[in-house]
Nucleic acid binder design. Structure first.
Length: 271
DNA sequence: ACGAGATCCTGTCAGC
DNA sequence: TGCTGACAGGATCTCG
């Protein structure tokens, strides 16, 4: 559920709060959240100072002194909070980095799909998942965006969700941007004109920027680094609204499975 | 190259 | 009240 805007919100909140703080100890509360042996993970983190927090795709990345990088994928229900010791955080804490000054950075995850990975100096770029990521949608020009889809017969929504094609988009922002661009999610990418793709990029970027400005979307689990919900869920026009009237024309919104995901769309507006 | 389906995981909610 | 099953979905895998 945390997609690009949610991860961006979390990281923007974390960055000033974790910069310059030294990891005094590493508490692995649930080993399933690690993608490597615990000893290796701990060795790479313990004693290191966090230099910065930033985002790539849906990954939260922490640059460490000693040139290592901590990568955290939140998947559906993961969260990162700093110096927050609520009941919720304690209940679902999977990893706790205790700082030398007594605060902590905690990775929480209800469904336990998320993971943490410590990468030694220079190995981030050779990590296959990282290396396979497509471009950031907010950096793309219309021409570069259109080039991603030329000759692709797959459904446009499948490609928007494919992180190797374009990074950071999940079900929410795919559905919302396709609705705003009036494109049916099952349209084959190769059937879209350059003009329609340009329009899609415009709406995609607008939706992502607005969602970041509103601190992301909270369906049920998502919280920012301070434990606060986002507000963009109040702007949803189609996501999660099947059976309700289309905000543009009043037609009953429908849902169908596309690329294994529930897709909600207006059968009249989206062609 | 693409799609469909299974997999992982657990809280929530509808239905009986 | 309490149980059961459906559902949520990012990434990865297998199979067709």
């Amino acid at each position: 559920m945390p997609e690009l805007p949610e991860v961006e919100t979390i990281v923007r909140g974390l960055d000033p709060a974790v910069r310059g703080r030294r990891v005094a100890s590493v508490e692995v509360l649930d080993p399933i959240c690690l993608r490597q042996p615990r000893a290796e993970f701990t060795r790479l983190l313990a004693g290191q100072t966090i230099l910065a927090a930033h985002r790539r795709a849906k990954l939260a990345l922490f640059d460490l002194s000693g040139q290592a990088t901590l990568a955290v994928h939140l998947k559906m229900t993961g969260g990162l909070t700093v110096d927050l010791d609520s009941d919720e955080v304690r209940r679902f804490a999977r990893l706790r980095l205790n700082f030398a000054d007594a605060g902590s950075l905690v990775f929480t995850d209800v469904r336990r799909f998320g993971y943490c990975l410590a990468l030694p100096a220079g190995s981030l770029e050779s990590w296959p998942f990282f290396a396979s990521l497509g471009p950031e949608p907010l950096d793309l020009s219309p021409d570069a965006f259109a080039a991603l889809f030329t000759g692709r017969a797959a459904r446009i929504k499948s490609l928007l969700l494919d992180q190797t094609v374009i990074a950071g988009i999940g079900n929410i922002y795919a559905d919302e941007s396709l609705f705003r661009a009036r494109i049916h999610p099952q349209t084959r990418a190769s059937d879209l004109s350059a003009a329609r793709l340009k329009r899609l990029l415009g709406h995609l970027q607008q939706v992502l920027r607005q969602a970041i400005a509103e601190n992301g979307s909270s369906i049920r689990d998502y919280r920012d680094s301070g434990g606060n919900p986002g507000a963009f869920q109040n702007r949803f026009q189609v996501y999660g609204r099947a059976g309700q009237p289309c905000p543009a024309c009043g037609t009953c919104l429908r849902s169908a499975t596309v690329a294994g995901r529930t897709s909600t769309f207006c059968p009249k507006c989206q062609k």
